[in-house]
Write a protein that binds this DNA or RNA. Sequence first.
DNA 1: TCTATTGATTAGAGCGCTCCAATCTTGTAG
DNA 2: CTACAAGATTGGAGCGCTCTAATCAATAGA
Lengths: 338, 338
Amino acid sequence: MVRPTMEDVAERAGVSRALVSLVMNNSPKVSEVRRAAVLRAAEELGYQPHVMARSLASRTSTVLGVMVNDLRNAFFADVVEGLDAAAQAAGFDLILNTGGRSPTREWNALHNLLSFRPAGIILLSPVVPAASIQVAAKQCPVVLVSRTIRSSTVDTVNDDGEAGSGLAVDHLVGLGHRRIAHLDGGGAAGAAQRRRGFQAAMRRHGLEPIVVRSEHTDTGGEKSVRELLATYSRADLPTGLVAGNDFNAVGAISALEEAGLRVPEDVSVVGYDNTSLAALRHLSLTTVDQPRTEMGRLAFEALAERIRGERTEPVRHLLHPSLVVRATTAETTGGTPR
Amino acid sequence: MVRPTMEDVAERAGVSRALVSLVMNNSPKVSEVRRAAVLRAAEELGYQPHVMARSLASRTSTVLGVMVNDLRNAFFADVVEGLDAAAQAAGFDLILNTGGRSPTREWNALHNLLSFRPAGIILLSPVVPAASIQVAAKQCPVVLVSRTIRSSTVDTVNDDGEAGSGLAVDHLVGLGHRRIAHLDGGGAAGAAQRRRGFQAAMRRHGLEPIVVRSEHTDTGGEKSVRELLATYSRADLPTGLVAGNDFNAVGAISALEEAGLRVPEDVSVVGYDNTSLAALRHLSLTTVDQPRTEMGRLAFEALAERIRGERTEPVRHLLHPSLVVRATTAETTGGTPR
DNA sequence: TCTATTGATTAGAGCGCTCCAATCTTGTAG
DNA sequence: CTACAAGATTGGAGCGCTCTAATCAATAGA
C-alpha cells in the first residue's frame, strides 16, 4: 500500500524532483526528451501525484466543500449531480457531507468542510443562522442554494418560486378557471414564495386567491382537499388546484378521485418540482419544473468566478422555472363540476 | 482569507508548536494549565487544524472516497446518507464523485479519488471492469455496493435480490395465486438475481415461472403488460405480477387499468425497491424493501475494519430484504379474472 | 575568442503538521 | 542532599509536493 513518490520517479528517470514536478504540471519549459523519460518512469512505477501534498505546497486547493441537508430529497441530489459535473470538468473535487436539517449538526459539518481549506463552499438549503455562514464566508467563497442571505460576500442561487406558481395560475386561468386554490406548504423550504406568487398572480387576473394550509406531503394534500370538500358546495368548489409540490398534488388527486371527482375533467391540478413521480404516465402530472442540474452548474460557476478572483460583488441567481403541461389540467367545464 | 497556523497559536500561548499539536490531538500528557492556555489561544485566533497538512504529516487519512454512479437514483442517495452518517460519527470525511455509468468516466473518477490517498474507497454499483477495481484495491481497502467480484481483497455489500423476489412469490402464492409472471429488468443492476430468485421460488412451489422481458421503467412495465394481454386469454392471464422494480410496477398497473382490469381485485402487483413512490397512498404499492441506509452503514463498517487492520479476509454482506404489504396485492378470485 | 542571451535543469526552502528523541521539571526515595 | 524516575515540554527532521532563484548548457552576436 506504499505508493511511489515524486522522488522515486525522479530517480528512475534520472532527473531532479523539480523537473518531475514541472512535467506533472505540464509546464512548457521542459525538453521533449526529458518529458518523455519522466512520463515513462511515472507510468512504470504507477506514480500519481498526491493531491493533498500538492495542495499544501502550492497553497491552493482543488477541493470544494458541499453541505447537503438531505440527499434523499431528489431536488438536492439533482443539484449535486449538476455541481459534480461542472466541478469535475474544471478539475475540482467535491467533499460532501450532510447536515440533517439540524443547525448543530450542520455547523459541525460546515466546520469539517472548512478544515480542508477548500477553494470554496456550497451550502444546499442550510438551516444554520446567517452569522455562521458569514464566518465561513470569511475563510473562502461561499455559495448558497435555495436560501437567501443579506451579505455582500455570499452568492446565492435560487429558483423563482413566485414566478413558478405564477406560471401555474396563468395556465389555469388560460384554461378558463376562475376559482383556484393553493395548497400551501406551510414552513417548508420555498413554500412562502410559492404562496406569494400564487396570490400575486391571482390578483393580477382580478381573481380572489384561496389559500388552504397544507404540507409538502401526499397525506397533507389529501387532508387539504377533504377540507375544501367540506367547506365548499360542489358548485362552488375550486376548479383548479395549485399544489405546494408534486407529492402534495398526488395526495390531492387521490382525495378528489375518492370523492368521485375526476381529474382533470372536474378539477385541474398542478404540481411543483417535476419530480420523477410527475413524469410517470400513470400520473402524468402537470407541474412546475425548476432547472435543478442547471442550478448546480450555476452554483459552481459563481464559486469559480470568486476563486479566480474575477468578481467581488455578490451575484443573486434567480432561475426561471417552466411549466410542464401533462394530463392533470384541462379546460374547465364552466365552473360547475359534475 | 489567510488562516492562523499552529505556529501562531504556539506563539500566542507561549508554548512550542509540538505542545499545540499534542493539545489538538488531546494527548493525556499535557498539563491542565498548558492545555487551557493553548485552547484559549486557539479560540481567540479562530484556529482550526489543517486536515490536509495533518494527513500528510501523520501518513494517515481521514478521507473516504465514494464513487456513485447516479445520485439521482434514490437507492444510491439513501446508501450515501447511511454512509455519511456512519463516517461522520467515526471522524471520516467523504469525498464524492459520480461516474455517470460510463466505464471511462468512472475510471477517471476512481483515479481522482485515489489521488487523495484515501483511507478507503466505496464504489456504488460500479461498471468498470474487475481489473480496475483490483488496481484500486492495491492502494487502499475497497468496498463494493451492489456489485459482486471475485477478489480476496475487496469486500461487498449487496441486497439479496434472489430472496427478495422469493418473498414476493411466497406472498402471492400465499394469497392463492398460481399463475404468476415476472417482468424482468433485462440488463439493469440486480435484475438477473431478481429473475433467478423468481424462478427458483416458483419451482419451489411447483409452479411454472413465466418471465416477460421488460425494463426498469414505467413505460417498460406498460409495454410488457400489453404483451401479456396480447398473449394470454383473459382466463389464462397471470393473476400475479412480480415487477422488476417500482417504476416498472406502476407502468404495469397503468396498462392493466387501461385494459379494464382492476388492481388488486383482478391482478395483484408487487414492486421492488420500496421507493417513495410506493409509499404514496395514491398507489400504495406492495413492494420489496432493501435496507438501504443499513447498506451504507455496513459498507463503512467493512471499510473501517480493514482500515483498523482488524480483518484481512474478505466479507460478503448479503442483506435480507423484507416485504412491505400495501394495497396492490390481494387474494385471487380463483384464477379467472372478470 | 569572449560575453550575452535564452532555454533547460536543479538546489533548497517551505507549506502546516506529526512524532521521535532529547531535554527540562518536579517529586521522591535513599 | 543527591540520584533518579516519571511527567511535561521542546527541537528538529520529515511527510510529498511547489516555487523561486541559482546554475548550467548551448547558441548567437561582437
